[in-house]
Amino acid sequence: MNSFFDTIFTSDFVFSTIRVTTPILFAALGALISNKAGSPNIGLEGIMLMSALGGVVFSAYTGSAFIGLLGAVLVGLISASILAYFTLKLKTDVILGGIAINFFADGGTIFLLYYLTGDKGTSSSLPSKVLPNIDLPIIQNIPVLGDIISGHNILTYVAIILIIGVWYLLNKTATGLRIKSVGENEDAAKSVGVNIMKVRYLAMALSGVFAGLGGAFLSMGYVSWFSRGMSAGRGWIALAAEAMGRGTVLGTTLSSILFGAADALSNTLQLLGIPSELISIIPYLATVIGLLIYAINNTKKRKLKE
């Protein structure tokens, strides 16, 4: 047991939590925006996966990590827009549409990977680029804090900035006000001339961009290659994190960190000789438990209201 706590209370563990939280956080913030507009994006998992491959492919063929990043974001944007077209315009059920995007991503990424490399497992034969890690000046020299905060991938810092950015967007800008109004009372928004379709498209597109950043982090930051199914449920975990965060930026961030910690824990416990198969279920178990606690509380509150 001692060794367990020794593992948790280290700067390494906190550093690793921040690292693995990054992709979950991106997707969860994306989920937050689209949910606020009342058009949930259930395709985040698949969109992340496609963007992860997109980043690898674009960076490998241009030799530029930055263009790779742009490519990943573009893939996220386009696939979310396609999903938006189906759900908003053709009235495809949001859940079925999301499921379809995930299937598409599962098969499509392997298809493309094989087409480009002749390998169905990983992209290791593609000379893809990695986004840089950044040492924060001054902070890096502070003991403990420096070890935790400095030296992360640039996208981790982008994610942190985006927490504030999303908060600002939703709470300070006209666009944010409209997004929230459309999600909360469509008729009210319509009655003052807000274009509901446009706002929802925008929210979906933004959630795609965020998932794209998350995907880029997976294949160009977390590791330096693409492997099949590498989003590994993070998109779904992000949906759970958004729900548990009760639609607030802070809550979403905190629950993302919680799930990130569960993920980091599973990475760390591996070092202690606990079977990796069992460890791998920790993040998913944490998600189920988190969702249940959230749902039970919600039910209680609803009952009180009635």
Binding site: F103, F104, D106, G107, G108, F111, K120
Partner: peptide
Amino acid sequence: PSEMVYILQA
């Protein structure tokens, strides 16, 4: 590759 089918399915 056979994964093309998943694309069609989606």
